[in-house]
């Protein structure tokens, strides 16, 4: 069976390593946080040092969506559509108070956090977060993905062992 051979698992590890070290972010920037996002990609804080510099504006080519700025009710269907267009696996970083929870706009036209519509992996507080804050958030996301991968692998291994055991018992 090719499913569990040494070649495929090693290849899977390589793929995961590569993915973790080269996110292609989609900046869904609407407001003030987008200006700070520009700082993160420009020379002072250069995100390219982590391998995350391939900023894609096309959802089809990206795997991390960085929602930077207030999402209003008018923008919500657009954001949902763009999220749906991203290929799996995909992650969402919510940057800044407005995207995380609506911030101090408890108002008639502002979404109270993007997690009303799409799942969020990392929340970065701040209004707007400092560039270091965002980079910290993205590094946290990387760790989270690594952790999740390890957990998943462990679970699969346990399941396999379980299956083997039941087969042997039968």
């Amino acid at each position: 069976m090719i499913g569990e051979s040494w070649v495929t698992t090693t290849f899977e590890k390589l793929e995961e390593w590569g993915r973790n070290n080269s996110f292609w972010p989609l900046p869904f920037g609407t407001a003030c946080c987008a200006i700070e996002f520009m700082s993160v990609v420009s020379s002072h804080y250069d995100m390219a040092r982590f391998g995350y510099e391939v900023v894609r504006f096309s959802p089809r080519q990206s795997d991390v969506m960085i929602v930077a700025g207030t999402i209003t009710d008018k923008m919500a269907p657009v954001m949902k559509k763009i999220y749906d267009q991203m290929p799996d696996p995909k992650w969402v970083v919510s940057m800044g108070a407005c995207a995380c929870s609506g911030g101090f706009y408890r108002a008639y036209h502002v979404m109270q956090g993007i997690d009303e519509l799409i799942p969020v992996d990392v929340y970065v507080p701040g209004c707007p977060p400092s560039p270091e804050g965002l980079m910290y958030g993205i590094l946290q996301l990387k760790e989270k993905i690594e952790r999740d991968t390890k957990k998943r692998r462990k679970r699969e291994k346990a399941k396999r062992a379980d299956d083997d055991g039941s087969v042997a018992a039968a």
Partner: peptide, 12 residues
């Protein structure tokens, strides 16, 4: 300190 990030709303 500005190194803050949360994985869910409860943590925040």
């Amino acid at each position: 300190n500005h190194d803050m990030a949360y994985f869910n709303r409860g943590q925040s």
